[in-house]
Design a protein around this nucleic acid. Sequence first.
DNA 1: CGTGTGCAAGTTTTT
DNA 2: CTTGCACACG
Length: 763
Amino acid sequence: MTDYLFDGLTAPQREAVAHIDGPLLVLAGPGSGKTRVVTHRIANMLRNGVYSSQIVALTFTNKAAEEMRSRVERLNPDSTVWVSTFHRFCARLLRAYSNLVGLEPNYTIYDTSDSIQILKRSLQKEEISTSHATPEKIAKAISWAKNNMILPERYEANSANAISSIVRDVYPEYQRQLRAANAVDFDDMLMLVAQMLQENPELRAALDERFRYILVDEYQDTNLVQYLLVRSLSQQYPNLGVTGDPDQSIYGWRGANLNNILGFEKDFEHVKVVRLEQNFRSTPNILTVADHLIEHNKRRKKKSLFTERPAGQPVRLLTYTNSHEESHAIATRIATQVAQGKRRPRDFAIFYRVNALSRSYEEALRQQGIPYMIVSGVEFYQRKEIKDVLAYAMLINNPRDDVAFTRVVNTPTRGIGKSTILKLQVHALDHGISMMDAAREAGMIDSLNKRAAVAVAKFVALFDRISLKINEPVEDILGAVLTETGYRAQYENSDDEEDVSRLENIDELLSSAREFDYQHPEDGTLERYLEDKALVNETDQFDTELDRVTMMTLHAAKGLEFPWVFMVAIEEGLLPHERSKDSDAQLEEERRLMFVGITRAQEELELSTANQRDFRGRRMMTVPSKFLFELPREEMDFQAALGRYTPPTQDWEDVHEIPEDDFDQTCESGDFSEDVPSVPDSLPSKMLMTAADMVKGPGSARPKLNPDKFHQSMAVLHPTYGLGKIVSMSGEGAKRTATVQFVTGEQKKFVLAFSELRPASTS
DNA sequence: CGTGTGCAAGTTTTT
DNA sequence: CTTGCACACG
């Protein structure tokens, strides 16, 4: 007998699909068919009598939610299973129970930049000096607190940390201003719902009953608030099914807590654990490389990945003399493959650690005439013209929204300048009213001169006129904004290329509004539309259908797969990133990042480094990443692209012994550790110097002895002999020498002050 | 009040 | 090399 829900599945997959009641932990390695298991499991639950209205599946991204929803619907056409992102799920609950946390149902969702505006205002109001902290850093610290469920009144400053005392002072005011504007930031959405559930046991119990079956995707990326949320909804009905992979946790810096998944079995009784270890994506070569690398992490659950796929090409590690050569070689390689008809542009992806690296690959691809797309963080909805138009809509929906008010009151310019806005703001704060209400009283504000008061009054009249349309289709509302305010007119008669593109973007916004109206004939309220816009991200629209080479950061690559992957610039300071090296927890996260990158590749994987890299307008010598020394040499093909670098042929593991460390400490400290006033950041240049530089000092201007940079059994790199390891050292100061055993078999002695020896990795 | 120029700083960023 | 922001000027 065949059963479409179970056929073609492996034994562990079936086990997970068959599980209905009780907590379930699915440890799903990369490419192990996780989404398939989850969707089939939902189908099996429905088949066994669970009502679809009792199931909610939570994801992090819209893309993941969309993918899961469509696959669930394909299996169960009539299902009404709620598949949603955490934030959207909370947005709805917040809408329904807004009064419990001091909000109106038409509350506004502020994005990061809006939140920072409110924060700046709060800092001003509290007269806090920010000389040693940027608003962004303070915002990060507040976000950290919220993700850890620390309410303003319970926040405690850490004396060793300057930022934390600022946070202690400003966080309550920031929160007051958000509430005054009837607004929330992204973190509030989760925190307020968690708080609501904590403070209202009967509501918690009711929702626990309503959402009897909860599924969470990418559980390794959950933070404390999300953990509390799903836990509190799984008390009477502990049917919580989570999937995730500790080895793919790469959002620790955003508050994700690896303990959630590592401790799941302790949090619930009778947890069913299923390990999906068979990989259906990559060749054994690729998998072995990934496996060897991740073995170096201590904080993980051991998995043994395997595949039945046939062996493919060995994974290659290429070392180029400089970054230009690297990008050029990659572009040429792609061009050749495409020209020979072996591959199409969309088969290739280039992954890098930081966005700033994309340019050189972009240029090289353009030179070769290869179509490419960059999946980047610059979002459509962050563009000025889009934010302006949406701010009008937000203000119509929620007139208390002071950020929107400030944004549009003089856009396009109508004679309401900085000082007028400031006076309105002061008046609003003094009287505990919104800026819009202050504007309505403009005539009575003494500090405003007649001309300003008239201009403000005219704006209020304009606003009221447009507001009448609040219940019309969204496209009409936006259309009215564009014409009545003169916003469109200001760009219309311009030859400026930028203005033309702005108009195009505005048209795109209008057509998205039209689409929304069409999709929501019943519930197409402005409120709903704005919620939609607040919670989407441009990369959600990332189109895999286009026949283009994909370029993105390693973070963006998670969840994707490509036949041929290039991972570039695998160098100390970039991967692992310079700022991730103070703790082992961070270092392990960097390693996971590399693991994620490697496991995206289906057939071909090419890792590369360049001895010299042009970055931020500077040319620097580089050091290959320590991670490269953790890969299985015998399985790989090491090619020094132009003969400068030879592969390691001996065991390097002892070279990079990682000291035992207290992970919990570093793991939980969040963003605070890096905010401690630190020594001047001289590491990058030091790290990138040759031995001669180090002993003499940069530019030889100020002789500086630094023999300590080298030590016994350290991995070093020499331009002619390649990679080696220091077997012994002798002498002092400028005469200090090192005996190096090279992987070529040669042994050489160097006077450090004159040698071109440099560290091959920092340990 | 709007625009231009100088200067400092620059990981990653699901919502 | 970019990019964002603060400040000065017209």
